[in-house]
Design a protein around this nucleic acid. Structure first.
Lengths: 114, 114
DNA sequence: AATAGTACTTTGCATTGCAAGGTATATATA
DNA sequence: TATATATACCTTGCAATGCAAAGTACTATT
């Protein structure tokens, strides 16, 4: 096994959640998103992000508006819709459950080891 | 979008980690693993688990030994190998990073909202 | 018009969760 | 012996999705 692959697999599914978290803050366009997630220690690439944003938009969780760029072609700025905010709440809960699951499994291990 | 699907996607990749966490505790066979993970709030089914265990065994992270069952056919009890324990450490770190990422994204949101 | 830079998009592959169905072993019962 | 039931392990096919790589389009500069 490859730990990098395992980490990549862990990111899977997280990504949707993280992007919605980020966009709940304010509107971002793709390059910004990549930069901001990188700062938060999550590496994402274009080939991952564009299809994901399109998917979330098609599901009505995101919307976008075009904005002029100071240099270059216009940008799609994405924001969270009301529906997206609803779903985000549920993902928050789901994430909390996962954290709990790992915590439980870890605690049990510690109980037995010590 | 389907929140259940999103949750399922979140579980992806986590599962490997959780199963290794569980097996770091002691030897389990498949039905036990499903039961224990269910108690930890993580629903897994046979069709997911068997291929995963086989994969981890082929990668040398797990080993198994047959044990008689009080009723029915013998069972494969899986344990973590030394190599598996090494990898588990790395997955622990990876998980910690993901928790941090989400925490950062959440904090920023809170800072802006309030 | 040609080039460079930025931005958005698509294609194809690999991985993996999962439903559904299959095989094998042990025990009980007719 | 045959049949039924319970338990356990395994496989197949599909769908979702991260990602590398290649492609398209718009803008500004030379």
């Amino acid at each position: 096994m490859n730990v990098d692959n395992a980490k990549s697999q862990m990111r899977k599914g997280m990504l949707e959640y993280c992007i919605m978290l980020l966009l709940s803050e304010k509107a971002y366009y793709t390059s910004d998103i990549i930069k901001r997630l990188k700062e938060a220690n999550l590496l994402v690439v274009e080939g991952t992000l564009y299809p994901l944003l399109t998917r979330l938009k098609n599901d009505g969780l995101l919307a976008y508006e075009w904005q002029e760029s100071p240099q270059g072609p216009p940008r799609k700025y994405y924001v969270l819709t009301d529906k997206g905010a609803e779903i985000l709440k549920q993902l928050d809960a789901a994430w909390g459950e996962l954290e709990n699951t790992v915590r439980q499994l870890k605690n049990r291990r510690l109980l037995i080891e010590n």
